[in-house]
């Protein structure tokens, strides 16, 4: 990723700005905002409800707690590109 310096930044600068970007994205996601990048995809936070799972070997039933999960949806453009 450090090749982002095709922008003309030094590697150090790039790393620092990138970490700032990641921090910003994290913050937005924590606020449960949807991050939508044109031509790339969408990051969104989804709430997973708790559920009961069964361990197939021990038949033990477990209650999995609810959680918030980051979900990424690639845009059609990106999908197209990957073909």
């Amino acid at each position: 990723m450090e090749l982002s310096r095709r922008l003309g930044y030094t590697g150090k600068e790039t790393a620092s700005v990138l970490s700032a970007l990641v921090a910003e994205m994290t913050e937005q996601l924590v606020d449960e905002n949807v991050i939508s990048i044109q031509g790339f995809g969408m990051f969104e936070v989804k709430k997973k409800l708790e559920r009961v799972v069964v361990n197939p070997t021990t038949q033990q039933r477990m209650l999995v707690p609810p959680k918030l999960v980051v979900n990424f949806r690639p845009s059609p453009l990106l999908k197209e590109k990957m073909q």
Binding site: L29, V52, L63, P65, P66, K67, L68
Partner: peptide, 15 residues
């Protein structure tokens, strides 16, 4: 972990 903070202290429980 950051995103899941509100639910972080939940653990899987055996029923």
């Amino acid at each position: 972990d950051e995103v899941n903070k509100p639910f972080i202290h939940f653990e899987t429980v055996v029923i």
